[in-house]
Amino acid sequence: MTALDRMIVLGLLGAAILSFQLTAPGEAGERVVVEQRGKVIFTAPLNSDRRVALSGPLGETVLVIHDGRVCVESSPCPRKICMGMGEISRNGELLACVPNELLIRVEGGREKEGEYDLLSR
């Protein structure tokens, strides 16, 4: 292992850590937005607790908003990955249930405009 090798490894480690910071979720979000096939089918503020059933091709997915956090409580999909994704509360965070075609997103709070402009070219 040469000195340059070590420098490259350290440099990339730095880049990885930096990219973790850049993509770190933003501040606490304000509302939940649910999309299905590219269309917004449901929005709700995060600060009021509620439980809502959203229907997809497989059946009803139950979404719970509690203490400013949102999670999937039950879902008809086979692998329950969306339930395993846990709770989200910050701007830009996502829950997705691919089989039931639901994309749950938290919006609001401080926008991270600059980064997204850069990434979407």
Partner: peptide, 17 residues
């Protein structure tokens, strides 16, 4: 670019990234 200055580890890490 680096020729003999760089070893397999450095090249490999760059490739993986």
């Amino acid at each position: 670019l680096f020729g003999r200055l760089i070893g397999p580890v450095g090249v490999s890490v760059l490739g993986a990234a």
